[in-house]
Write a protein that binds this DNA or RNA. Structure first.
Length: 920
RNA sequence: GCCGGGGUGGCGGAAUUGGUAGACGCAGCGGAUUCAAAAUCCGCCGUUAGUGAUAUCGUGCGGGUUCGAGUCCCGCCCUCGGCACCA
């Protein structure tokens, strides 16, 4: 019988279905080791699975099946991130309501998941567009309103003119909307915010110290995102008045700095073009207004890339230095951001790179107030008390280099905080002058002490204090979209904004609307809009904004853990089952969610905890980011630098003399260029449809291939021929078992004492491979797990049928179990065909095979023989040989004479079981 | 610029953490089978020299530690990812 994946896989899947094989139950007595919750990130139902999904879920599936055989009660659920923009776009294009499109996609993708044989517990499936789910988004939103964690405010927001919606900061990439790519505008709009910044410090603390199961890489990304910065916020007093005669900002221009120790070096202040002082300067001097306006242009868009040049204008307005009392001129600078801190900075050209560039350009004083002191090296310290432009030439004459940016050691013009080269032969080591001079009261202090002293001096004058700022902002969740969770509030002419009462939830989103591109159809849907005010009962209007879809994904994994939750007979968001499964033991998903989703989910968890709804601090114990799937890119040049892409399957590749791909030809002979390797995607047309793979080779081959191609976290390049190889291996497994079905199903246990030495070696190799497989399962290096199973088969095939049925039987039983998590269909089929099921029970719950330690012991072992650390041969000794025996055997080896040049051994190093090294 | 990964055959990658570098697979070459092809099976497959046994060099580059370095240390180069006019 030939290997027929279609038949085998359909049969296996229907058997699993019939017994509900993957349903997880809390405290299931079958599993003594307790729970294990392994979950993949919720997919968006875009139409069909792509290879990234296959990889993600196969990793998840291998882990789940392995852990179950280890005795854990495994939960592996699946659901759908079903709200969002693509459904609206598809609706517009096809004239079908988003709901219909979404549910149809879900049906297709669910069928594909089943075809892949993934061990999901479908009884916990959820779709975030289901009112039974999003009701709890609304419910918790109202709770947050009550607790002050959600609030409404008008703010300048990022407005995407194409998508007609507000974007979060993180959804703006290079000044453009993350989906539409349109240049983002600033708009004032009212909306709801969630107070994630309340948890900044806790989120950071856990990121840095309490998430050992997260990669360094991921924690760094989150740390940067939270962006903690400790410094001093203080004011420059002034009496600049607005048009009505009132002092602007109460006569205090605030700035934030991390280097308050350099405050005596301030020679100017710079404000953002949007700052009130800039606006006033424009009013007072109309000639300045257009120049200030021009500085805005460089703000958040192209200019960032194009114009690195610092630009500014002097305003002719002055503020007072809070400590020295000096008059300091206010400049407007294009490098000052209104969105960060107070939109103003103190300018210390001697000690800040940007300030230096700015001052250098406009001829502003540069006043140095700290310098490097090391004294650790011989040679005279440079005498510096004031930096002026000519200082560069002064430095040039000595061996003290002023080095900025240029690693060659040549000095270039640029900002100098006087990095001193400490060793002329070692240009990489730089030391920082770290003590104060010039200001007697700061003399001799290092940076951090000086900051404290300055902060104290400012505090005494009531002008400032130490302050910690974070880059993290509150999470704006209002979206001017239709296909999302309705925000449960009502607008009443008399009472204002009134929350929907809990008992009226959910506010159901009508599912039959079709957006036409002119904004949310909710705005014109009277059936949805009309309601009465919960407070006064008068006719009122519903809120038409819906929630950001990151709300949906912030807690879905807890709903998996407690579907249809209820407490005392009443429906709830989560229940005690959540505390059984959570926190999640292993979360698996793409690195693209490193900040957005993960940070929101962590925040949401902490908010629920603080409302007494759960008992843990963090949702995800361990996190794995599977690598991207890449493929070759081929194209022909089009007009205006555009490229016409061709799927790699249509291209016959050509190679250069080194064997590297350098292009290819299409079936019609057209020459195409090679565009290198890139992420599989629609735009480059280099994606591979998993359905084609399943149809052609079967799910087991598709799974085996994506696991074998590389480490789970590494990027992987697609290869057609490697897929053929995966299929070939499974066919050999099938053939091996089929050819020996008789001897395998009837044989008894191996009697090791009766094996020939050749068969002992075979058994040794089998159990060695098993040992490797188990080791690699534990560290989740699934590509070498596959290697190990291939070794097992290679070893077993070398013994002819009939030679040792007992060993064939043992081999098959080990191989099938080790291979099962990767290729569950074919192994389950063979497990049952060969009669193992009758003895050991279902493969799903069979005991994981352990190597026989006796089989791993050999009578004789080969030790590598090294002479002076170079491998020169090998010696064979008894495995029980002691050190002295090995040493004398090694010393007697002919290689010692040959390579030792007749000298007597000085030293012999024996590494047990590995090698012996003779030093002569 | 700062932070974090990573550089190993023609290719994907392995090396159980300092102990035979290149496991396993792909591609390639030679052979068997076949009327032929596919499929399958057997053998070879880092470099240089040699008919060969074998020797030589070899894990991005330059040093170092060690009996022994892909692995540890110092200094570079390249590459991927994150953050950033963040004050």
């Amino acid at each position: 019988m030939v290997y027929d994946p279609k038949r085998i896989e359909a049969a296996a899947q229907s058997r699993w279905n019939a017994v509900d094989a993957y349903k997880a139950v809390e405290n299931d007595p079958r599993f003594p080791k307790g729970k294990y919750y392994a979950c993949s990130m919720l997919p968006y139902p875009s139409g069909r699975l792509h290879m990234g999904h296959v990889r993600n879920y196969t990793i998840n599936d291998m882990l789940a099946r392995y852990m179950r055989m280890q005795g854990y009660n495994v939960l592996m659920p699946m659901g759908w991130d079903a709200f969002g923009l693509p459904a609206e776009n598809a609706a517009m294009k096809n004239g079908v309501p988003p709901a219909k499109w979404t549910y149809e996609n879900i049906a297709v993708m669910k069928a594909q998941c089943k075809a892949l044989g993934l061990a999901f517990d479908w009884s916990r499936e959820l779709a975030t567009c289901d009112p039974a789910y999003y009701k709890w988004n609304q419910w918790f939103f109202l709770k947050m309103l009550e607790n002050g964690l959600a609030y409404r405010k008008t703010q300048i927001v990022n407005w995407d003119p194409v998508d007609q919606t507000v974007l979060a900061n993180e959804q703006v990439i290079d000044g453009r909307g993350w989906r539409s790519g349109a240049i983002v505008e600033k708009r004032e709009i009212p909306g709801y915010y969630l107070n994630i910044t309340k948890y900044s410090e806790e989120l950071l603390d856990y990121t840095l110290n309490k998430l050992p199961g997260w990669s360094e890489r991921l924690r760094t990304i989150q740390e940067n995102w939270i962006g903690k910065s400790e410094g001093v916020r203080f004011a420059f007093p002034h009496d600049i008045k607005d048009a009505s005669g009132k002092p602007i900002q109460d006569g205090k221009m605030y700035v934030f700095t991390t280097r308050a120790d350099t405050i005596m070096g301030v020679t100017f202040v710079a404000v953002a073009p949007e700052h009130p002082l800039a606006a006033r300067a424009g009013e007072l001097n109309p000639a300045l207004a257009p120049k200030i306006e021009a500085l805005k242009a460089g703000g958040t868009t192209e200019a960032e890339l194009a114009v690195k040049e610092k630009e500014g204008v002097a305003t002719g307005l002055f503020v007072t230095h809070p400590l020295s009392g000096e008059q300091i001129e206010v400049w407007v600078g294009n490098y000052v951001l209104i969105t960060y801190g107070d939109g103003a900075v103190m300018g210390v050209p001697a000690h800040d790179e940007r300030d230096w560039a700015f001052a250098w350009k406009y001829g502003i004083d540069i006043k140095q107030v700290t310098h490097f002191v090391t004294g650790a090296r011989a040679g005279s310290e440079p005498q510096v008390d004031r930096i002026n432009q000519p200082i560069f030439s002064a430095y040039a004459e000595s061996h003290w280099h002023v080095s900025y940016g240029d690693k060659s050691g040549a000095y270039t013009t640029g900002w100098i905080e006087l990095w001193r080269v400490t060793d002329s032969n070692n240009l990489g080591t730089r030391t920082r002058f770290d003590e104060m001079q010039q200001c007697a009261w700061l003399e001799g202090l290092n940076t951090s002490n000086a900051v404290d002293v300055v902060a104290k001096a400012l505090a005494e004058k009531g002008l400032g204090e130490k302050k910690t700022t974070y880059r993290l902002r509150d999470w704006g969740i209002s979206r001017q979209r239709y296909w999302g969770t309705p925000i449960p509030v009502i607008h009443c002419e008399d009472c204002g904004v009134v929350p929907v009462p809990y008992e009226d939830l959910p506010v159901v989103l009508p599912e039959d609307l079709i957006p036409d591109g002119s904004g949310s159809p909710l705005k014109t849907d009277e059936k949805f809009l009309q309601c009465s005010c919960p407070k006064c009962g008068k006719p009122a209007r519903r809120e038409t904004d819906t929630m950001d879809t990151f709300v949906d994904s912030a807690w879905y994994y807890m709903r998996y853990a407690s579907p249809n939750a209820e407490i005392d007979g009443k429906p709830t968001m989560v229940d005690a089952r959540n505390d059984y499964w959570m926190p999640m033991d292993q979360y698996i998903g793409g690195i693209e969610h490193a900040v957005l989703h993960l940070l929101y989910a962590r925040f949401w968890t902490k908010a629920m905890r603080d409302m007494g709804m759960l008992k843990f601090d963090e949702p995800f114990e361990r996190l794995m980011n599977h690598g991207m799937l890449l493929n070759h890119i081929f194209f022909t040049p089009g007009e205006h630098g555009a490229k016409n892409y061709f799927p790699p399957t249509e291209v016959e590749t050509t190679h250069d003399e080194k064997g590297h791909i350098n292009g290819g030809t299409l079936p019609d002979g057209t020459r195409v260029e090679y565009g290198g390797i890139g992420k599989m995607g629609k735009s480059e047309r280099n994606g591979v449809d998993p359905q084609d793979l399943i149809d052609k080779y079967g799910a087991d081959t598709a799974r085996l291939y994506v696991m074998f191609v590389g480490g789970p976290e590494d990027p992987a390049v697609w290869s057609d021929t490697a897929v053929e190889g995966a299929m070939r291996f499974l066919r050999r497994v099938w053939t091996y078992c089929a050819d020996r079905a008789g001897e395998i199903s009837s044989a008894g246990a191996v009697d090791a004492s009766k094996l020939t030495s050749e068969l002992k070696t075979t058994r040794f190799e089998l159990h060695s491979a098993l040992k490797q497989s188990n080791y690699d399962y534990e560290r989740r290096q699934y590509n070498t797990v596959v290697s190990a199973t291939m070794k097992m088969l290679n070893t077993l095939e070398a013994v002819k049928p009939g030679v040792c049925p007992a060993l064939s039987r043992e081999g098959a039983s080990v191989l099938l179990r080790a291979l099962y998590p990767v290729a569950p269909h074919v192994t389950c089929e063979l497990w049952s065909d060969l009669g193992f099921e009758k003895v050991h029970g279902s493969l799903l719950d069979a005991a994981w095979p352990q190597p026989d330690t006796a089989a791993l012991v050999r009578d004789e072992i080969e030790l590598v023989l090294q002479i002076n650390g170079k491998t020169r041969g090998a010696i064979t000794v008894s495995s029980s040989a002691d050190k002295a025996t090995i040493e004398s055997a090694a010393a007697a080896a002919p290689e010692v004479q040959k390579f030792g040049e007749g000298r007597a051994p000085k030293k012999i190093i024996v590494v047990p079981g590995r090698l012996v090294n003779i030093v002569v």
